[in-house]
Simulated assay, not measured.
Amino acid sequence: MLPTSPRALRDPELRRRRVDEAKTVESVLELNRLVWRISRRERCEDRLPYLDPTYGGVNADVIVLLKAPQADADPRRGEGRLISLDNDDDVAAVLFDLFAELGIDRSRCVGWNICPYPTVGFDPNSDELSRGRGDFDAFLRLLTRPKAILVLGSAVRRGWLDHSFDELLGSEMRVVFGPSPYGIDRRRGARASLRESLLDAFERNADR
């Protein structure tokens, strides 16, 4: 049963169960094996955030692309990190609420970070983005039917464009740019813009 309110992973027992499932549920198993390999390369073995098994995993048709494992997903906060709508942070809470408001089924999507490891600065640098491009290519090859990617935030958009991530996509995939959920209510019109971006990526993609 899915949570009915945001920040559910503040419950350590739920977090423990989700992390265990992330390593066994078939839809995310190969994706999380990729995460493990990246963690080994980055010398933070088994500490990068795994993909939440409540996502659609390899069967997702929409990718939600964020910046890097920060806030509740930051490996420096300890073991058991996840990329999840149920994380105990503001970004996840904003997305949780908008998914609920718009009636979006989370099993239609999968999350990823343009840099799937901690960055030196608040935003990724060019070297980190170059490595992240290769990791995104490996991630994309594991998905069975991706149709759209929702690129969230100015830093992610800049990295996407500057490092030509679009060259990795199939001809049928759509790219939708939207604002970062971080601090969204401090920016005039940003919540409405994010809402429209979600509709564009999910609802206008539903019959494709």
Rank of each mutant, 00 (worst) to 15 (best):
L2F: 13
L2V: 14
L2M: 14
P3H: 03
S5K: 12
R7W: 11
A8C: 08
R10V: 11
D11A: 04
P12D: 13
R17W: 08
R17Y: 07
A22L: 03
V25F: 04
E26L: 09
E26I: 04
E30P: 01
R33L: 15
R43E: 15
E45C: 09
D46A: 12
R47D: 02
R47K: 13
L48G: 04
P49T: 01
P49W: 04
L51N: 09
L51Q: 05
D52W: 00
D52S: 03
P53H: 05
P53C: 09
D61M: 13
V64W: 01
A68T: 12
A73L: 03
G80Y: 01
G80R: 05
I83N: 03
I83H: 06
D86I: 05
N87V: 07
A92K: 03
L95M: 13
L95P: 01
D97F: 04
D97K: 14
L98K: 13
A100G: 05
I104R: 05
D105C: 04
D105S: 09
R106P: 15
V110H: 03
V110W: 06
W112S: 08
N113A: 00
I114M: 03
C115W: 00
C115H: 00
P116T: 02
P116D: 04
P118N: 07
G121N: 07
D123F: 12
D123H: 13
P124Q: 03
N125H: 08
S126D: 15
D127C: 08
D127R: 12
G132Y: 00
R133S: 06
F136S: 02
D137R: 14
A138K: 15
A138W: 09
R141Q: 15
L142Q: 06
L142S: 07
L143W: 02
L143I: 05
T144N: 15
P146T: 11
P146V: 11
A148L: 08
I149Y: 02
I149G: 04
L150A: 05
L152P: 05
G153L: 01
A155L: 03
V156K: 05
R158P: 10
L161M: 13
D162K: 13
F165Q: 01
F165G: 03
L168V: 07
L169K: 09
G170S: 12
G170N: 09
R174H: 11
V175L: 04
P179W: 01
S180F: 01
S180K: 00
Y182V: 02
R186Q: 11
A192E: 15
L194S: 02
E196Q: 14
D200L: 14
D200F: 08
A201F: 04
E203K: 13
D207F: 14
R208Y: 14
